[in-house]
Simulated assay, not measured.
Amino acid sequence: MVSPTAFEQAWKLGDQVPGWLTVDQATMLWRAALRLGPGARIVEIGSHQGRSTTVLGLAARSVGATVVAVDPFVEGRLFGGTPTRVSFEKNLARAGLNDVVRLEDEYSTKLRKQWNERVHLLYIDGKHDYWTFTDDMLWSENLVPDGEILVHDAFSSIGVTCGIIAKVLCGNRYVYVDRAGSLARFRLTRPGRADRRRVLAEMPWFVRNVWIKVLLRLRLRPVARLFGHDGPYDPY
């Protein structure tokens, strides 16, 4: 039995790690992990400095599950390379998760082709272009029936959202369940009409997010505030 304060303690550690995961999104990750059983495997695509990894790892430990963190730690200013990996490893060590989290230092699109382990929960927060995201969704071929897929920057990133339209709205493998901000939850099962309508219902929010991104690029933050966005970063 997980104590009521367990999430607060996990979030206290996770929130010390730089990143864009919000407390509501961390709660969604936490609850998804708690629905798993002993021996379950969580695959996280895109770990960065370990903000979400910390939350998933602590939740996984409480139910006897493990986490596989997939991140190539590409060198360069955008992704941080080796310094980011060092920060990731330090953050996991501080949370005491070295025995729970296994790092796969590889591109998710390459690792997927040789992967042969069962996956019980899939969390996707990798590269946000359409091609990489839709390839990452193919990790679901290893997912248990009715398994959950959590996707960050859904209905915010253009590439990710186009992938959702193509593979979820127009596909027959995934059902959209709900979201916390841009963290959307899907289930591996055949969708019905109501499921597709839920995806369509998110399109106005997606258009609003794209518009805010345009305003931020034009340095029109006061205008963005009129649409409910107060901050220098893209909606997430």
Rank of each mutant, 00 (worst) to 15 (best):
L226R: 02
D71R: 15
T53S: 13
D129H: 09
L97Q: 08
L200C: 08
F227M: 04
F133P: 12
A166S: 08
V43G: 04
R51A: 01
L36T: 06
W115P: 03
C170G: 01
T27A: 15
R112V: 11
P38V: 03
S3P: 12
V74G: 13
F155H: 00
A59D: 03
A180H: 11
A180Q: 13
A6M: 12
V68D: 09
V17K: 08
P235M: 07
Y130C: 04
D99V: 10
A33M: 07
V160D: 11
H128R: 08
R197M: 08
L58A: 06
R193L: 14
R185G: 02
L36F: 01
A40T: 03
L220N: 06
T109R: 01
L143K: 13
D234Q: 06
D135N: 12
R190F: 02
R219K: 14
E75Q: 10
R190I: 01
T134N: 07
V2F: 04
A40S: 12
I42N: 09
R118A: 13
F186V: 02
L103H: 11
S3M: 04
E141T: 03
A60P: 07
M28G: 07
L121T: 07
G228S: 08
D230M: 07
V177N: 05
A194P: 11
R187P: 01
R112S: 09
A184E: 10
V177S: 00
R118H: 06
R85A: 01
T109V: 06
R219I: 14
T27K: 15
P204C: 12
R51G: 00
V23S: 07
F73I: 13
I158R: 01
W115K: 03
K113E: 05
V101T: 12
A166R: 01
L220D: 04
V63F: 05
V55H: 13
P72I: 06
S157P: 15
T161N: 05
L97T: 10
L78T: 15
V55C: 09
D71M: 13
K110Y: 05
L78K: 14
Y176I: 07
T54I: 15
P222D: 01
F155N: 00
H229M: 14
R51Q: 00
A10I: 07
L34Y: 05
I42C: 03
E202A: 00
W115S: 00
C170R: 03
A69G: 14
T22Q: 11
R193Q: 14
L218E: 08
A184N: 10
G64S: 11
G192S: 02
I164L: 13
P145E: 05
P72Y: 02
R179G: 05
R77T: 10
G37A: 06
E148K: 15
S140D: 06
G64A: 09
D234Y: 04
D230K: 09
L111D: 04
M1N: 06
L138G: 07
W205Y: 03
V144G: 13
L92G: 12
L200F: 12
T109E: 14
R208N: 00
D230N: 12
I149K: 01
R118K: 08
D105H: 11
G81P: 13
T134S: 06
H120C: 03
P83F: 07
V144A: 15
R77L: 08
L92N: 05
R185P: 03
Q114L: 11
G231H: 00
Y176H: 01
V175K: 10
